[in-house]
Structure formats: C-alpha cells, structure tokens
C-alpha cells in the first residue's frame, strides 16, 4: 500500500508539473518520468511483461518521437518557451476536470468493490506468448497490419511535398 501510494504520488506529480510547464522540452521529459512511474506501478502489480513493454514503447520510443516533433516544430531557440494559454480557458479546463474527478472519485468510493486478498494472478512470459500466438493470432496479425499502415501513413503525412515546398 505504501509503495503504491508513493508510486501514485510521484507519477501524478510528474504528470501535473509536466502539464503546467511553459517549456516543451521540460514537459516531455517530465512526462517520461510519469510513464516510468506507470511502469513501476505495473511492476508493483505483478505484470512484469507489461511493465517492460511500457518502458520500451513509452519511455523509449514515444518520448523520442515527441522530442523530435518538438524540435521539428520550432523556428528559433526562444520559441521553446510557449506562450501561456488564456486564463479563462485554464479556469474552464480546471472546472471541467475537477467535475470529472469528483464524479469518478465519488463513484469509486461509493462502490462496494470486493477486495479479496487473493494471490496475484501469475502468468509467465512463455504462457503469454502461447496465448498471443495461440488464441489471439488474428488479433496479433491485425495489430501488425494496423501498426504498418499507421507508420506508413505517418511518413506520408509528415513528408514534404516537393512541388509545393519548392522555393
């Protein structure tokens, strides 16, 4: 419980500070810390494979893509510090988010959740692989096609159109 509280506080603090930063690079790096905290939560819960997948995909890959996007979409060094959003918009967002938070907390706290102190469900990587390529082969193939199409689409969207961009 104490470990979980610690992980939750670190993750939430990193995410909240990242969302309030003016500097985009700082935001991205703090979000990497937040994702690493979520990986720690998965480790705490006993889902090791998911924890390492989270580290590989988010801490490793998505963070790099985000940093490249930050560096590719700025004109000068000074522009890293982005202009603050309007106060009205921030207040409206906080009110909306607070309402959602209140609704979710109320729902969670008022639901009688069975908290049986069951032993954690253990699954080995071997069993997981057998499940993935046994019962879920079609899903794995679909995900592969989806990833291929998405990455090809990303390249097409982000690539320059030489006819338009010719000086």
């Amino acid at each position: 419980m104490i470990t979980l509280t610690f992980i939750a506080l670190v993750t939430l603090a990193a995410a909240a500070v990242a969302m309030s930063q003016r500097n985009l690079i700082h935001s991205a790096l703090l979000l990497v810390a937040s994702w690493a905290g979520i990986a720690g939560f998965y480790l705490w819960a006993g889902a090791e494979f998911v924890a390492f997948a989270q580290i590989l995909v988010y801490v490793g890959a998505v963070s790099m893509v985000v940093l490249f996007a930050v560096l590719l979409t700025r004109r000068s060094h000074a522009e890293l510090a982005i202009a603050p959003a309007s106060v009205k918009r921030i207040l409206a967002a906080i009110v909306a988010g607070g309402a959602v938070l209140g609704a979710l907390f109320g729902a969670v706290l008022s639901t009688p959740l069975a908290s049986a102190a069951a032993p954690p469900p253990a699954i080995s990587v071997k069993a997981l692989g057998a499940q993935l390529l046994g019962r879920h082969t079609a899903s794995v193939l679909l995900i592969a096609v989806l990833l291929t199409v998405a990455l090809l689409g990303a390249v097409v969207i982000a690539s320059t159109n030489s006819k338009e961009d010719a000086p």
């Binding site: 939750a8 993750t11 939430l12 995410a15 906080i94 607070g98 938070l101 979710l104 907390f105």
Partner: peptide, 18 residues
C-alpha cells in the same frame, strides 16, 4: 488503484483542455 488512475485521467484531461 482506481483513485490513482482517475486522478491521472483528470490530469490528462485538464492538460488536453487547458
């Protein structure tokens, strides 16, 4: 755990809106 995930969801929501 559920409170943790709700709080994280709301941090993301506020960030996306604000």
């Amino acid at each position: 755990c559920l409170l943790f995930s709700s709080a994280l969801f709301c941090v993301g929501l506020i960030g996306a809106l604000a």
